[in-house]
Design a protein around this nucleic acid. Structure first.
Lengths: 339, 339
DNA sequence: CTGAAGTGATAAACCGGTATAGCTCCTGCA
DNA sequence: TGCAGGAGCTATACCGGTTTATCACTTCAG
C-alpha cells in the first residue's frame, strides 16, 4: 500500500473513519483505549494527512504567505530577509504550517498575489513587510478578509495585528551616543521616504537635535541602494562644512558611504564617524568594522509567526506586540570628532 | 455569493459540473459555443479554482519546493539565493505554480522535509541545491518517487534531472587570465570539500597548473564562512614565499581575504591579485572593487523551473541542461604581479 | 436502410479528509 | 422502574473540484 488513508486505518482498527479522524486530531469522541490503538496503527502504517484533503474539509490550508515587493537585484545582500524567513519558519514549523514565499516587482503585483491567494485558498494568512504611509495593501487585505500581521508597523493603524520594534528609541540611542562622543554635525542618510519606519527615524533625529544641541542634523532620503547611498555621501562630504558623523539607514548604504569616504581621503573614524542602522556580516567585514544597530531579526520573525497564528485562530483579535529593543554594537567606525 | 464554485457556474450556464470542468481546463468534451459561454460566465462571476479541491481531484498541487540546508546566519549575504529564487519564480509563475521555501539546519532535516512533503502531498517536485559527493538526498528522493531537479550537479548522476553550468571551464578561465597576467603562484581558497562543485573547481586548478607553468597552486578548503576565508588568507600571506594571486570560491570569502591583506599591509592589486568565484554587489562595494566571475543566477533559476516542470509532466524524462557559461568581470583587484 | 463511429453532454463516483446527526449502551438519580 | 444524560461510536453528508461510464443524437459508409 503506497499511501495509507484514514479509511485503511479504520479498516485495520475495526472502527469507522470518523473515529479515526477524532483520534488523530485529539478531539473527544473516542475512548482512550481506542484512541491509543488507532494512533499506534497510524504510526505503524506511517500515515500522514493529505494536506489537500484536510484543507478541503477543514477549510484551512496550514500555510501562510509572505510577499516581498522589491526588485530582485536589491534583495539578498541584506541578511534581513534571510533572518526574518528563518525566524518565521521557526515559529511556524512548531505548528506544521508551511510558508509560501513570493518576490514581486511592486506593490500592485503584491496585491494581485493576495487576491489570487485568497480566491484560490492557498494561504490562511499573510505577513506584511515594508509598510508605507497610507499603505494600499491594508485596505486590500481588509476587503479580502485575509488575516495578516504587519511587521515593523506600529499598532493602531486600522485593525491589522502587528509586530514592531521601537525605531524611534533606536534612532535616539544612536544620536545620543554620537552626541555623547562630542558630535554636533550629524547627517542622516535615510531610506525611501514613503516607508513608515523611514519617517519615524527622520522624525526622531529632528526631535532630538535641539535637546542635544546639534548644529545641523539633515536627513536625506534615498532609495536604499548602494548607488544613492554613495552619491548622498559624496554630496555631504563635498560641502564646505562637513558633518563629523553620518548615520545610514541600512548596512549596504553605510558600506557604500565608507567607500566614498576612503576614496575622498576622509579618514574613518578620524574625520568621520559612521553608524549603520542595521547590522550584518557586511558591517563586520569592513575595515574599519562599522558600528551598527543590531536587531534580533530572527526573533522578530518568530514573533510575527506567533501573532499571525493567533490572528488566524481568532480573526477578531488585534494584537500589537512590541519586540526587544535593538542595541547599538560599537565597533571601529565611531570616535570623538577631530575638530 | 462569496465564492463561486463550478456548481454555481454549471447552474447559471444550464450545464453539468463536468461540462464546466472540461471547459475550464480546455479539454475536449464540450462544443466551442458552450465552452465560450461557460468561460464567459466564469469570468463574470470571477471564479477561481479552489487549490485544495483541485489538488485532491487531480492529485497535483501546483506547487514545488526548495529546501536550503544552511545555517541562517550564513545565508542572505549571498545574493545567490535571492537571484535563484526570483528566477525560479519567474519560471514557475508562468504556469501558476507556487513555491514553498524552507530553510533548515542540515541535510538530515532536509530529507525529513522531503518525506513530509511527499507524504502530505504538499509539493509536486523539488529543487536540489548544493550537491555533495555521494549525496544522501538523491537516494531519498528516488525512494520517495518525488520528481526533482538538481541545480549545479552535472548530469549522469543517477536518474535525476539537472541544470548546471561548467564550473571547470569557469575556473580555467580565471586561472588562464591570472597566468596571462604573469602570475605563477596562485592559491585557491575553496569552499566545503564535500560539495561537488568545490571538487570540480579544485580539480580544474590542479589540472591547469602544469600547462600554465604554475610553480605552486594549492587549493585550501574552508566552510565558506568569512572567518575561515580570513584565517586561510592570513596563513597564505604569512608564508615565506607568498602567492601573488588568490582565487576565492565565494564573494564573502574574497571580501574577508581583502580585509586581511589590507590589515597585513599587502597591497591589492600591487602585491596580491584577488578574484572571487561569484559576483555580487559585495564585490563592487569594495575598494578596490573585486574582479569576479559573474553567473546569471536568475536565468539558472528560470531554467531549473522549466526543467522541473518537464520532469513532473513526464517523470521518466532525464534532462541535463547546460546553462550559459559564466564570464569573468575584471575590476580593480587584479594586475600583473609585482617583482 | 442499417450499423458503426463520433460528438456533446450528463450523472455519478471519487479524491481523503472533516463535521454532524443519530444510534446504542451504560450510568445515575428520582 | 423509568428515564434523562452522556460516553463512544457509526453512518453519512460534505468540501470543490476531476474523471469515467453512459447515453442521446448525428453523420456517414456500405
Amino acid at each position: 500500500m503506497a499511501r495509507p488513508t484514514i479509511a485503511d486505518i479504520a479498516d485495520k482498527a475495526g472502527v469507522s473513519k470518523g473515529a479515526v479522524s477524532f483520534a488523530l486530531n485529539g478531539r473527544p469522541g473516542v475512548s482512550d483505549a481506542t484512541r491509543a490503538r488507532i494512533l499506534q496503527i497510524a504510526e505503524q502504517m506511517s500515515w500522514r494527512p493529505h494536506s489537500a484533503a484536510r484543507a478541503l474539509g477543514a477549510s484551512r490550508v496550514d500555510s501562510v504567505g509572505l510577499v516581498i515587493a522589491r526588485p530582485a537585484r536589491t534583495l539578498g545582500v541584506e541578511p534581513f530577509f534571510a533572518h526574518l524567513l528563518s525566524g518565521l519558519q521557526s515559529g511556524l514549523s512548531a505548528h506544521s504550517i508551511s510558508l509560501q514565499l513570493l518576490i514581486v516587482e511592486n506593490t500592485e503585483a503584491e496585491i494581485e498575489v493576495y487576491k489570487r491567494w485568497a480566491s484560490e485558498h492557498r494561504v490562511d494568512g499573510v505577513i506584511l513587510v515594508d509598510l508605507t504611509v497610507r499603505d494600499p495593501r491594508l485596505d486590500a487585505l481588509k476587503s479580502l478578509e485575509l488575516p495578516a500581521v504587519v511587521i515593523g508597523g506600529r499598532g493602531g493603524k486600522g485593525a491589522l495585528a502587528s509586530v514592531w520594534a521601537d525605531d524611534r528609541d533606536a534612532m535616539l540611542s544612536i544620536v545620543d551616543y554620537l552626541a555623547a562622543l562630542g558630535h554636533r554635525r550629524i547627517a542622516h542618510v535615510a531610506g525611501t521616504p514613503n516607508f513608515q519606519h523611514t519617517q519615524r527615524r527622520i522624525r526622531a533625529v529632528r526631535d532630538a537635535a535641539p535637546r542635544l544641541g546639534l548644529i545641523d542634523a539633515p536627513s536625506l532620503t534615498t532609495d536604499f541602494s548602494d548607488a544613492e547611498g554613495a552619491a548622498t555621501t559624496r554630496r555631504l562630504l563635498s560641502q564646505a562644512v562637513r558633518p563629523t558623523a553620518i548615520v545610514y539607514d541600512s548596512d549596504v548604504m553605510a558600506v557604500a558611504g565608507l567607500g566614498v569616504a576612503m576614496e575622498m581621503g576622509v579618514s574613518v573614524p578620524g574625520d568621520l564617524s559612521i553608524v549603520a542602522f542595521d547590522d550584518s556580516i557586511l558591517t563586520q567585514l569592513m575595515h574599519p568594522a562599522l558600528t551598527a544597530l543590531s536587531r534580533d531579526t530572527f526573533d522578530f520573525g518568530r514573533q510575527a509567526a506567533e501573532v499571525l497564528l493567533e490572528v488566524i485562530a481568532t480573526p477578531t483579535a488585534t494584537i500589537n506586540r512590541r519586540t526587544a529593543d535593538p542595541v547599538l554594537t560599537v565597533r571601529e567606525s565611531t570616535a570623538p570628532p577631530a575638530h
